[in-house]
């Protein structure tokens, strides 16, 4: 694998965030942490959008990842952060591999609706499962990393560092993937599925593979979110959550893996700011932003950068 400029930039970003962590004010650590969790999920949304597909049910994997992490703590008493993320990867990988077989044939609003239905099925199950706290969910706490105990006072920093590492690895992986032959197929599928088949590649298989990757990314984001917030509930798979991921993906654009990460940060900033100063209008701010982006910046915020570079 050859490293290009973006790959180096991703690694550099990760290193800087990691080193800067202890020096940053706690509000900024919190904001970055949530952004990285979200950003990882939106990396997956971006991959789907490169295929021309929008999921209105990615909360499903965000939630599954979080519950996989939570159950590891709750049921198996193994509150290890790495294991939690690992469990999320396995669970979301398996579930998406199965559901992907059904979804890979669907496009446009039918894909959106079926993915929505799947996520709402999980929602319906969770809200009625008393042993998992029903609508209230339950608390999650991670106490070790790879078997090493983490002192309570350094817990937050540890969770943050882990989010940095996983988001960086995810972005690095996705960037390499998109630059690969397999990854290039995504854009080709978006443009012309017929031609892809007549060049000898299976559109179904490619979409399935990309769906699984995007689901696993959402699962990682969910597990990180669970240990970050310390609490999980079925709202994670309720449709407005999935809608929020769509929102961030549109806001970000799909031009680069930096877009979802940056977009997630902008989103978090808008949210914290609006929530603090005007809690009853922050959704309105989001809605208006989304409309403006769709009308004036169809390539998302990322297109501001590329436009500048070209000009």
């Amino acid at each position: 694998m050859k490293l290009d400029r973006t790959s180096f930039a991703i690694l550099a970003m990760g290193a800087i965030l990691l080193i800067a962590g202890p020096a940053l004010p706690s509000w900024m650590v919190s904001m970055l942490n949530v952004s990285l969790c979200y950003g990882t999920v939106v990396l997956g949304m971006m991959l789907l959008m490169r295929n021309g597909i929008v999921s209105f049910g990615h909360g499903l994997y965000f939630c599954l990842g979080a519950y996989a992490a939570g159950l590891l703590d709750q049921m198996l008493k193994m509150p290890d952060m790495l294991l939690m993320v690992g469990a999320a990867v396995v669970v979301t990988g398996v579930v998406s591999a199965i559901l992907g077989l059904l979804l890979a044939k669907y496009r446009d609003i039918f894909f959106a609706m079926l993915s929505l239905a799947f996520s709402m099925i999980l929602y319906g199950l969770l809200v009625k499962t008393a042993s998992l706290g029903s609508t209230d969910g339950f608390n999650v706490a991670a106490k070790t990393v790879a078997g090493f105990a983490v002192a309570p006072e350094s817990q937050r920093l540890m969770v943050y560092s882990l989010a940095v590492v996983f988001a960086t690895v995810s972005a690095f992986f996705l960037h390499s993937y998109l630059a690969s032959h397999q990854g290039r197929l995504a854009g080709a599928i978006k443009d012309n599925e017929l031609r892809v088949e007549y060049m000898g590649a299976s559109v179904m298989r490619a979409v399935h593979r990309n769906y699984v990757i995007s689901a696993v990314l959402a699962g990682i984001g969910g597990a990180l979110m669970a240990v970050n917030i310390g609490h999980i509930d079925p709202e994670m798979t309720y449709w407005p959550q999935s809608g929020e991921f769509v929102f961030v993906a549109i806001l970000s654009g799909t031009g680069s893996v930096f877009a979802p990460l940056g977009g997630a940060l902008v989103f978090e900033a808008i949210r914290s700011f609006a929530y603090e100063y005007s809690p009853n209008t922050w959704q309105m701010v989001l809605g208006i932003t989304m409309l403006l982006v769709m009308i004036f910046l169809p390539g998302g915020l990322w297109s501001l950068f590329t436009r500048k570079r070209e000009g």
């Binding site: 209105f56 446009d108 929102f247 309105m284």
Partner: peptide
Amino acid sequence: RFMYGKDEVVLVLVTYALFLILEDLIKL
């Protein structure tokens, strides 16, 4: 009316943005 002729998925997203706006309008 400014959106007619756009992709169906884009139209869904437009109404989603509208949904967000109206939700807060109701709160206000």
